[in-house]
Amino acid sequence: MGAVQSYRLRLQRKRWRIRAFRKRRELSSIADRTSTIKRDDILVFSTLRNEDVRLPYFLDYYRDMGVNHFLMVDNDSSDGSVDFLAKQPDVSLWHSRKSYKRSRFGVDWLNWLQTRYAHGHWALVVDPDEFLVYPFCDTRPLRALTDWLDASSIKSFGAMLLDMYPKGRLDAQPYRAGQDPLEIAAWFDSGNYSIQKNKKFGNLWIQGGPRSRVFFPDKPALAPALNKIPLVKWDRKYTYVSSSHMLLPRGLNLVYDEWGGEKASGILLHTKFLDTFSTKAAEELERKQHYSGSVEYLAYSDSAKDDPDLWCKWSEKYINWRQLEILGLMSKGNWA
């Protein structure tokens, strides 16, 4: 990596930071409880739109894990999300009516909030349908992990997105507020992932899973990226480049070992595929606010009409993190 390239990335990083700074004006505060954030608190950052049915379980899941404060951006929800979140004692809420796409899918907004509030904290960036699983998460709180990462001088922790789906039609089992979505979307693909290295940013680019298998069998290159680096000991100089897939400076993207060993990593259980999915897909298609002309949602809605069953004979049923580690989807690394 030459000096020129490294300087270019530096400029790019500054550009994203300036952009985030400009985009701060699109955010209006609804409930600001950031003064209650203490020095060592673990923070969750999230954008959402019309997710009220998911929010109760989402908040409880991360509260139990030891998250201290949630900083959330509501992108013009029309359901009860705003009222519900504004009432929560550990949530600070912002609102934006502006384009999700123009804010680079919420990245600019969250980059700004992180610059402002996350400096020196462990910050976890997740959507309301993503649930972090890390080694020993059934016996050790998230604080144990961040303390260990601190002690090991590790600044970022990777957690691949694992698409979960139900057996049978997506709309067969309705999801109720407060319910564990994994009771319905309990299945996943264990071994059909393809990895490439992104030379420029140094991150891995992972594709595969049920979305690639069912929606993109003939156009695998278009399948969505599954690599994520959601947990970072934030510094105001950092910036996410695209969603939580990659960061700058690029050293933060090196969450994998290149010399044969395994680094510790987790999984984001992605519970997008519930009965709420088809309405969401229809709405998102209308809004055209997602990646590359919503090609993902287009493909979904095409296949979803014919055969909405993602399940196949070789699908695995989720048990716990140890199962994911044995299957080779995540690793304990040298955390024992």
């Binding site: 690599n227 070992d257 290149e258 060993g261 395994e262 995540m330 304990k332 690394g333 040298n334 955390w335």
Partner: peptide, 18 residues
């Protein structure tokens, strides 16, 4: 744990071993 971190599982390509 040391072995996993330094040698890893042979033939496994994943998010934290590439």
């Amino acid at each position: 744990a040391v072995d996993r971190r330094t040698r890893g599982r042979a033939g496994l390509y994943m998010q934290s071993r590439f």
